[in-house]
Design a protein around this nucleic acid. Structure first.
Lengths: 341, 341
DNA sequence: TGCTGCACTGCAATCGATTACATAAAGGTT
DNA sequence: AACCTTTATGTAATCGATTGCAGTGCAGCA
């Protein structure tokens, strides 16, 4: 026979006080006399008491959880961001609910469920391409919990966000290649409708213009941030008459796919073409060749987003829109080399 | 002024019925007359009603969430398993709480918080090395929710688990190398106290014995599944007088670290040494050389574990201990090659 | 007609903790 | 001594949904 979990009345009886005192001793210790507090704590300990969160949350009108909307949980890029979020949340005793939004585009109803104050106290979206119906609910401010975008964001509607300085990162990449003497520089982009694609492309154009280079349309490859799209770009690259001497890939994964497919065709990086990535995921420093790339502070992105959200939740302020931009850093490794042409 | 969320009494008033009927119409539709049901559903729709989960959970004495204990959220190996779990849970409307257990070893109290029925309806542990105090609470069956191990597991205490056939995987790897003519085969292990290390090592010994080979102690390298430990093993390997002609690495990450460090020292895989990994993470097929490895069905591991747990939660049976073992598959790529000695 | 059974629906208790308000005791002031 | 603060504790209402039990009405049957 399972002995049932002790509740606050059990502790109260054991300590010889009222439930109100027990509750206060546990959550606002300074409001109860020291001796009483000790008695209560001892009783709670003895009974093995744990507060029932459903009851507390019901009474306090909150859920004690925030949900994180992840575009694709299978993609390792997001795991470090999640780690950052989790770190921040565990400090303040808030749970992290993780939801994959892959189905959101076909079945928005599924995700809409979470956009409700009874479900979560706040939302962190790592997905900048949420369907409109979700965004409109989120921005309506009616009963929907505060939402913060991290890493990606959306131009539709006004939301707070934490981002890396994508434009500057792209500029650094191009400047690096230009500094190595490359003139014909190509680019492999992310999905067409993605904000990261746009801002990184903008950085590239800016820096190319500054250097006085033109971006040849035939040197522009279209990918989707995945390994395989990088490999496909390599196929296209191989068929070009006049190949660029360097390529900026908007994600490390694509850079790996690209380099790998070239290697299978006996084209060498960096001897035949220099490659710069974006993200600096773990494997970048151990790829062969080690990848020159733009480092995004992924963990910090998660941490910052979580901290901002916690502030909103705590103070219950209707979130003033704020945008935090974190700096990026060019990490030069072995996939780039002076143009020898 | 924020209009507050409609509650069940609002819907009841709107539909002209009692709250009991509303509740039933929504959660046990077959117990209310069709006409009433339609009225209620229409009213709920009109009011924009969503059930308050805290209230429901309090009354139903459950939490509607399961927690997943992840050894290290930053490690991409786990993301695919999480994706599998999430898929299974979203089908039955249970939330997934993700908790990183890195702190668990120094601060077990933090994780113990979750091992309580008011916190979660069940637990999936991806971490086989949880501290004893956590395990003893988990197995005591007193108020602790059911727990299932996925991928890793623990020999201490009796728990259900879903695993890959690690031993067989290791056997396949060795058999493959032996078939290529390799005789001096080395091994790079995971952490000494890890069950995966033990079972994979056991498989290696079995197959080596079957082939009549001996495992030279100097060909045994000790790692911890990370990239860098693979690189360290490469350093040791380079200093050997008599080097093995092939190496079985107990994780893909270590294989990458190993190969990468060798490459920096102008030692080629597979020309100078053949390497087999374990896991088949995404990048394996695009590493240079593409990695021969043992594929674990990671998504399926997550799915199976979640399904088992859901069963337990649903039926509320005290979980009969069951162990599910999923088959693995050897994926031959370019990092292994016939011995030319 | 009267009785039984079934299908619906409503009443009100209940889940467990929090907290506004009331009360009591102790200390301070004039 | 009378009165006011301050501090500590208790009483009881409250959060919102669920569900055991009881009641109502109607069909079927003798």
């Amino acid at each position: 026979m399972e002995p049932k979990a002790p509740k606050i009345t059990d502790v109260a009886r054991l300590a010889g006080v009222s439930t109100a005192t027990v509750s206060r001793a546990l959550s606002k210790p300074e409001t109860v006399a020291e001796s009483t507090r000790n008695t209560v704590l001892a009783a709670a300990e003895k009974a093995g008491y744990r507060v029932n969160l459903s009851a507390r949350n019901l009474r306090r009108q909150r859920t004690g959880a925030i949900v994180v909307l992840v575009p694709n949980l299978g993609n390792p890029f997001f795991s470090e961001i999640l780690a950052g979020i989790e770190t921040a949340l565990s400090e303040v005793d808030i749970n992290m609910l993780v939801v994959d939004t892959r189905q959101a585009h076909t079945k928005p109803q599924l995700v809409l469920e979470y956009l409700h104050a009874t479900r979560a106290d706040g939302i962190i979206a790592l997905d900048g391409s949420l369907p409109d119906e979700i965004l409109s609910v989120a921005s309506s401010g009616t009963g929907a919990p505060p939402i913060i975008f991290a890493c990606e964001w959306t131009p539709k509607g006004e939301f707070s966000s934490v981002r890396a300085n994508n434009t500057h990162g792209a500029e650094l990449a191009i400047a690096h290649l230009a500094g190595l003497g490359h003139r014909r520089i190509g680019m492999l982009t992310g999905p067409q409708d993605n904000v990261l694609t746009h801002t990184r492309s903008a950085g590239v154009r800016l820096e190319m213009a500054r250097c006085g280079f033109a971006l040849d349309p035939s040197h522009l490859f279209s990918g989707d941030f995945t390994l395989e799209s990088g490999a496909r770009a390599a196929q296209e690259w191989l068929e070009l008459d006049q190949r660029p001497s360097a390529l900026f890939c908007q994600s490390d994964q694509m850079a790996f796919g690209f380099i790998s497919e070239l290697a299978r065709n006996d084209v060498s990086v960096p001897d035949d073409v220099s490659v710069v990535g974006f993200d600096d995921i773990d494997i970048a420093r151990r790829f062969i060749p080690a990848l020159t790339t733009v480092r995004q502070p992924r963990k910090k992105l998660g941490l910052c987003a979580a901290r901002m959200l916690i502030d909103h939740v705590r103070t219950n302020t209707s979130p003033a829109i704020e945008t935090t931009i974190l700096e990026v850093e060019l990490i030069v490794r072995d996939s780039t080399k002076a143009f020898a042409g």
